[in-house]
């Protein structure tokens, strides 16, 4: 998919939110969109997904099936989780048999089983976000666009996002993710697009800026000491699995992390 000299402004005489954006994403590639709040990350994602039409330039070779996970799932709707996903699957063109199988698979996978009959408006933010992820995956997307997908998700579901991304990439799809919390270290290998001053530049991962995720197995009794030692050495600990109270991800105060453990 190509964005060719794309510009966007929301009003005819308004300021350019994005201009002269030329980027491309090949099948099997992922890109992380970074930038400060209000820089235009969501706008870029919505242009790529086809929600917004560029005021100038063109978006070329967009895959026919696009999955878009909006930043905030629109939960103010009079449907249950099951009813909503079933309707979205039918809207996406799935037959009734396929709809039933696909909805059941994603409900089970995302842990939405206990909420099947709950109305969308009664879901917690994280659970609603899972419904948002499920609706984007009902048909295997050629382009998956995730706008802050980790927002509000619990630890288990956070791990699921990279899995879903890997699956889309493995099937030849492209993935575009925005993130402002540093969660995208979970997507090693993704290209980095920086949105600033109404344009997009690609940041080559190199030298000190590059990070890798290292997974360690540590005896339970030594977890606290190991985590403390790693932090003292300046590493960014993403989280701890396999104990009742997981350690919250923290970033050391000084210096760029040379590696990341979890």
């Amino acid at each position: 998919m190509w964005l060719d000299d794309v510009g966007l402004r929301y009003h005819r005489r308004g300021p350019w939110v994005l201009r002269e954006v030329t980027v491309s994403l090949a099948p099997g590639e992922a890109a992380v969109v970074l930038g400060r709040n209000g820089a235009g990350k969501s706008t870029l994602l919505q242009l790529a997904a086809g929600v917004l039409r560029p005021s100038r330039g063109r978006v070329l070779d967009r895959p026919s099936v696009v999955g878009w996970v909006p930043e905030r799932f629109p939960a103010d709707q009079p449907f249950s989780v099951d009813g909503y996903l079933t309707a979205m699957a039918r809207i996406a063109g799935l037959s009734s048999g396929e709809t039933e199988r696909t909805v059941r698979r994603w409900v089970d996978r995302l842990g939405l089983g206990p909420f099947r009959t709950v109305r969308l408006s009664q879901l917690s933010k994280g659970t609603a976000q899972k419904v948002g992820l499920a609706q984007a995956m009902l048909r295997p997307p050629g382009l998956l666009v995730l706008d802050e997908p980790w927002e509000g998700l619990d630890a288990a579901a956070r791990e699921l996002v990279p899995q879903v991304v890997d699956e889309v990439l493995a099937e030849g799809g492209s993935v575009l993710v925005s993130d402002h919390r540093g969660e995208t270290v979970r997507l090693p290998g993704a290209r980095e697009w920086l949105v600033a001053e109404a344009t997009v530049v690609e940041r080559p991962p190199s030298g000190e800026a590059a990070v890798a995720v290292v997974e360690l197995a540590v005896p339970v009794g030594q977890v606290s000491a190991t985590v403390a030692r790693l932090r003292a050495e300046g590493h960014h600990v993403l989280g701890v699995r396999g104990q009742s109270a997981p350690t919250v991800a923290t970033r050391p105060g000084a210096g760029p992390p040379s590696e990341v453990t979890r």
């Binding site: 929600v51 999955g67 878009w68 909006p70 103010d76 979205m88």
Partner: peptide, 16 residues
């Protein structure tokens, strides 16, 4: 009645 974001999801799914 339909939230704006849901309308946008429909645009992405079936085209404008």
């Amino acid at each position: 009645v339909e939230p704006d974001v849901q309308r946008r999801l429909a645009v992405v799914t079936v085209g404008p």
